[in-house]
Design a binder for these strands. Structure first.
Lengths: 211, 211
DNA sequence: CCACTTGGATTTGTATACAAATTAAATTAA
DNA sequence: TTAATTTAATTTGTATACAAATCCAAGTGG
């Protein structure tokens, strides 16, 4: 378990609920669990804290943040502001090659019916990222990546991703088609609708059946 | 030099150019300079890296990011998307008490004519924060705080803040007045203009006279 | 009964020492 | 001369040991 991979592992284990929402993580427990000293654990924790994938609990201890409908809505609202911007700035630099690669990712999602929620989430983000990357906006991409990691914690609910899968796929296809035919404004409108819809579905679910 | 303060100190020293843009920071150098072991230095560096106040230079070393017009523009564009959102979400919860506290900050800026660029920047952000805080959006506030820290590195140029000071003050006053009289849309429009103007001034300056 | 100390147990913070990796220079071959 | 390769120096990564702080529960006074 090397340094970078400990960070990755911890992040994945938080997503997968090994360290559930509300759990207080202490360095000793983690260094025992991952069979490393506290130093690399501290490094990983520090990084996760800075990304808000962990939050302070008391004066010195760290906690896996609870999942709330309010914060989920907030995250989607922020995405709703930033992702259209990313798409607009990427648009002039989008190539058929990139759009093709994005389509490949879609196909991968649709074909492999028995992907884990985590894998589907990762591929879904890769699809969006493929489009946004062309913007060459390092800060924007960094923020979107961070936001997506936050959101991913909420998408463990099988029901959501399954119910929404078909609509989502179709919207992704339409988005690609609009970009291919140079209809930027329509593409942005669709993207906004896409994000808003996903956000509403998630928050509705959270309010009905809190995490 | 305790842990939290080492992080603060390093951040301040980067802003103030003790570790200038492009400088590669190594742990030994910093632990000598700040008279602490490498462990707390590592913690601080890890955090600064996660906030993009430091960036990777090569495989393992960290660098103070260069200042570029492109990134400055990007940062202001992101603020342009997020700050109006923060103001809108704060608006229903804004009280006369908060508006009063915001006004106090303005007065503090205007009265003290010989503030350092850093101090003026800090107070300016506190003014904006006073308004946005009422939104109770933790993620949004965290992002805006981070963005502002990024932007602050660009505002060491005396000419900019001095030239713009008067216009900026007046816009701040107008903003408060619009909020007092419940004119949200006008307030948002002014805020957008305020950010855009500041961004254009900065990027124009950077393109004329690169850092 | 509640708020407030106080003690010990736990947990985090830091220093030092050493291992692993990276960087940069020197050397060699094309 | 240039590019690739090896080697030495530097720098980062990690473990262990100890100091400082925090947390929590038991005890005390109001």
């Amino acid at each position: 378990m090397t340094k970078a991979s400990l960070y990755q592992q911890l992040k994945q284990d938080i997503r997968q609920g090994i360290w559930p929402a509300g759990a207080v993580l202490n360095q000793q427990k983690l260094s025992d669990y991952y069979q490393v000293s506290r130093i690399p654990v501290r490094d990983a924790l520090q990084q996760l804290k800075a990304e808000a994938l962990l939050v302070m609990a008391g004066k010195a201890s760290l906690m896996v943040p609870p999942l709330t409908a309010e914060e989920a809505e907030e995250l989607y609202q922020i995405r709703l502001q930033l992702e259209p911007m990313a798409l607009r700035r990427a648009f002039p630099q989008l190539t058929f090659s990139l759009l093709g690669q994005a389509e490949d990712l879609l196909q991968q999602i649709e074909q492999d019916q028995h992907l884990s929620a985590a894998d589907r989430g990762a591929l879904n983000w890769q699809f969006h990222l493929m489009l946004y990357q062309a913007s060459h906006c390092p800060h924007l991409l960094r923020l979107l990546h961070s936001l997506h990691q936050q959101v991913e914690r909420y998408l463990g609910f099988q029901e959501i991703s399954l119910n929404y899968a078909d609509t989502s796929h179709q919207e992704h296809r339409e988005l690609l088609e609009l970009l291919r035919t140079q209809q930027l404004d329509a593409a942005v409108a669709l993207l906004q609708q896409h994000i808003q819809q996903a956000g509403e579905l998630l928050t509705r679910h959270l309010r009905q059946q809190p995490a």
